[in-house]
Simulated scan of single mutants.
Amino acid sequence: MKTEHYTRSLALPFVLALTATLTACGGSSSGNDGNLQVGEDTKYVAVIATAASDYSSGEVELAELDKEDITASGGYFSTISDITVNAYGENYYLIEKFNGDSIKKVNVSEPAIATWDYSTLAAGDEGSSNPYKLVFVSEEKAYLLRYGASKAWIVNPSAATESEFRIGELDLSAYLPEDTIGAPNMSSGVIANDKLFITLERLDSNYQPTNTAYVAVFDTTTDLEIDTNPESTESLKGIPLQGSNPARIEHVEGLGLTVVNRGAFSSPFTGTGLDIVNPETYAVSSLIADEDIATQINSAVFVSPTQAYILNYSGWQNLALQRFNPAEGVSSLEDVADLTGGDFRALSLSPEGTLWLGDANTNAQGIRILDTTTDEQVDFVETQLLPIAITFLETEK
C-alpha cells in the first residue's frame, strides 16, 4: 500500500501527446456516480479532474457546494493529463488512464493524501489497461472497467492491501471483433435493477467505430453474464446498440438507460445519437437518431424524462450546450444562452440539481454553474487547469 503526499509541480515539461488511442479515450462527465442522497446534515463536494492546455499534466481540484461563492482548492496529485474521477460516499477515486494504469483512493477530509494507490495491471497484461471507470455496488464491491483490456475487474475499494483489491473479474473477450485493436473497449457502466450494464465500443484496428457496439449485462449478485436475447442465434449475449462508439450510459428514472453514442470521431460523425435501453426487456430505441443530427453528441445529462442537455460537437473546440425535451426528441433542441462555439469538456448534474459545465476556454477556464429552471448562470468556479471531468461526493457537515 502506498500513502503519499503530493504537491503542485511548479515546472512541468511540455509533452504533447495526442495519439489515436488518446483520441479514442474521449471523455466528459463522470456525473455523481448515482449514490448521492440530498439531506440536511450532508455537505457536498465537487471533485474536478483538470488538465494542462498542452496535455503535459493533470490534477484534482475540489469545491464545496454549500458556499455562497463557490471556489476551487487544489490542485492535488499532479500527474498525467489523461485522468478522470469517480466518487462514493466520502471518498473520491483518481483514475490515471492511458499508460497511467493506477487508481488512488482519497478521503475528502485529507484531500492531499492517498489512502491507497493501486495498479490496474495484472501479471501478463500487455500494454496499458487504460482504466476508465469504477462502478460501485457498495463500499466493499465495485467494478473496474479497463478500456485497454478484455477483462473488467471486480474490486474491493476498502481493501487495505493491493493484493486484496482485485477479488474477481468479468471476461468480455467474446466481444472482440475480427477487426480489433485488441480489446472490446469497455467505455462506461451503470448499475440498475441489480444489474451491471457495460458499454463496449469495439473499435477496429484503425481505431474507428465500424463494428456493432454492444451493452454487456451482468447480475451483480452472481457476477454472471445475462443472455439478453436467449432465442437469438447471435453468439453474443449482450445488447446491440443502434448507434456506435458509446461514451456514456446513465439510468434515468422514468426513461430507462440512456446511451450517448459519439459515432465517428470526425465529420460526418456517422453513428452518433442517443439510444434508450429498457433495463428489463433490453429493447433498444432511438431518442435522437444518427440521421436526425449532422453534428456529434459528445455528452448528455438528464434532469428528468422531459428535460435534458447535450454537448453538441461540430469540430475541435467548437461545441454548443443545448437543451431538449426527450419526449419530443431532436426537434426540441435549442442553444442555451450564448454557450456556443466553445471548448466544453465536462457536463454534470449536481446533487442540488444545478448543471455544471466545464469550460476549457483558456481565457476563462472553470466551471459554469447553471440553474436548470431558467438556464441562467448562477456561479462560476475558476480552476487552475482546464476542467475535463466532474463528480460529486457527500460528507457530514
Rank of each mutant, 00 (worst) to 15 (best):
G315D: 10
I310K: 01
A320W: 01
E291H: 07
I310F: 04
P326T: 06
V303K: 10
T295S: 14
V330Q: 10
I293T: 07
D292K: 07
V330P: 02
A294R: 12
S299H: 11
N312G: 02
G329P: 09
F324N: 13
S314E: 07
I310P: 00
L333S: 10
L311W: 03
I297P: 09
A320T: 03
L319F: 04
T295D: 11
N312T: 03
A308S: 13
I297M: 09
A300C: 12
V301E: 15
L321V: 01
P326D: 12
E328Y: 07
P326Q: 04
P305Y: 01
V301F: 08
N312D: 14
S304H: 02
S332N: 09
A300P: 13
D290M: 08
A327N: 05
A289E: 14
L333P: 08
A294L: 09
L319E: 04
N325R: 09
S314Q: 12
D290K: 06
G315Q: 08
A308P: 10
S299L: 03
R323Q: 15
L319P: 02
V330C: 03
Q317H: 11
S304A: 05
Y313A: 10
T306S: 15
S299W: 03
D292P: 02
I310Y: 00
V330I: 11
S304T: 03
S331D: 12
N325P: 09
G329T: 11
G329R: 06
A289R: 09
P305S: 01
L321T: 04
L311F: 00
F302P: 05
T306K: 07
P326L: 04
Q296S: 15
L319A: 01
V303S: 08
N318M: 10
I310M: 04
P305M: 03
L333G: 08
A327V: 01
Y313L: 15
D290C: 10
Y309L: 02
V301L: 08
A289C: 11
Q296N: 11
L319I: 06
I293L: 15
L333M: 08
Y313N: 15
G315C: 06
V301Q: 14
W316S: 14
R323K: 15
A300N: 09
T306N: 15
F302E: 02
A294W: 08
A327D: 12
S332F: 11
N325Y: 06
W316P: 02
Y313E: 14
G329C: 11
Y313T: 12
A320I: 03
E328S: 14
T306H: 06
N298L: 15
A327I: 01
N325W: 07
F324R: 14
N325C: 13
G315Y: 10
Y313G: 05
I297E: 14
I297A: 14
A308T: 08
A308M: 06
A300Y: 07
F302M: 06
Q307S: 06
N298W: 11
A294D: 10
N318W: 07
L311K: 02
Q322H: 04
I293G: 04
I293N: 10
D292G: 10
E291F: 05
